[in-house]
Design a protein around this nucleic acid. Structure first.
Length: 311
DNA sequence: GTGTTTGTTATCAA
DNA sequence: CTTGATAACAAACA
């Protein structure tokens, strides 16, 4: 496969920085607006009864938007929650009402990936063939749920259900409780697993996916295939710092876009240009300038690393 | 047609 | 019981 082809087939899906970017965007645009209509595609993304889903949400408002790992939790009044998981190709795009668009900014095109001319989403062009659901608000603005691959879902949950889901997730990387001692304790509980598997395990630390797992290992200079039990104290500390720094920087730049990821306005994330290993297989290592980035299957996932400067 | 892509869950094994 | 490893899932593309 040519290098260009490799670049084009790279994909990404929302992980913590992307989901958090969407959450913040939606917080600015849809909170406390009355939901007047909900449209569900025939290929429904709703878990459970779609008619019941619509009737229970219609007329209510989203009063709060939280994130649990990669899951978005929209609080409706009356202890009901809309859980949205974007999985691989899900998008939540907000389109302002007609009145706002008419007097709004000029038409803007959004592109992603270093010059590959791959459009993300222009809210004006919605719905698309992959729009699976749309929420219409009283000011005629809309929230579209797009999902090409249909792994993502919308699920209405009660308090108990939501709490159960919440308990299944591990610690949030930006929580005050997530300190070095806690990280070591987490690793100690998974001594038999590989580092990469531990980083990806949502029940341990919530929100790290394939891209950031690889970037975190590279940043820390540790091979992702290392058994967790083999990590030295110094390496554990480096990994802990890397989790925070990589995710913080990705968040700062609005996440990573190769192909499908778009924020709540349909725009790409800018962290793509800061990636050091993910999608760089076959290319020279940016840090040691000697190694060639390798790609292998580790813990069941495509994993990129520098065999020279990651130990 | 085959292999690869990914987050999560189901399933089986130890 | 826990923990881990792996398959399965949907859909697209090379």
């Amino acid at each position: 496969m040519s290098l260009l082809a490799k670049l084009i087939v790279r994909k990404n899906m929302p992980e913590l920085p992307e989901v958090e970017t969407i959450r913040k965007g939606l917080e600015k645009s849809i909170l406390n607006k009355k939901i007047v209509q909900i449209e569900i595609a025939k290929k429904s993304p709703v878990k459970g009864n779609a008619e019941k889903f619509v009737s229970e949400i219609k007329g209510k408002k989203f009063v709060r938007i939280e994130r649990l790992g990669k899951l978005l939790v929209f609080s409706l009044s009356a202890k009901k929650y809309l859980l949205v998981h974007l999985k691989m190709t899900g998008q939540l795009i907000y389109a302002a009402g007609k009145k706002v668009v008419a007097g709004g900014p000029p038409h803007q095109k959004f592109w992603c990936g270093g010059g590959h001319n791959l459009p993300v989403i222009n809210p004006d062009t919605l719905p698309t063939a992959y729009t699976r659901a749309a929420f219409v608000f009283s000011d005629d603005s809309k929230l579209y749920f797009n999902d090409m691959r249909r792994f993502g879902y919308l699920r209405l949950a009660g308090e108990a259900e939501k709490n159960k889901v919440e308990r299944a997730y591990g610690i949030e990387p930006f929580s005050k409780k997530f300190n070095l001692a806690e990280f070591k304790r987490i690793l100690a509980g998974r001594e038999k697993s590989l580092l990469k598997a531990a980083l990806l395990d949502q029940a341990l630390i919530a929100g790290i996916g394939n891209i950031y797992a690889d970037e975190i290992c590279f940043s820390a200079g540790v091979l992702p295939g290392r058994p967790a039990a083999s990590l030295t104290e110094k390496e554990k500390a480096a990994l802990f710092r890397a989790i925070k720094s990589v995710l913080r920087q990705a968040l700062k730049y609005g996440g990573t876009t190769f192909r499908n990821y778009a924020n709540a306005r349909g725009q790409k994330g800018k962290f793509t240009e800061f990636l050091k290993v993910y999608g760089r297989q076959g290319m020279k290592c940016l840090r040691c300038k000697k190694g060639i980035i390798q790609k292998r299957k580790i813990a069941g996932r495509g994993t990129s690393f520098c065999g020279n400067c990651q130990k």
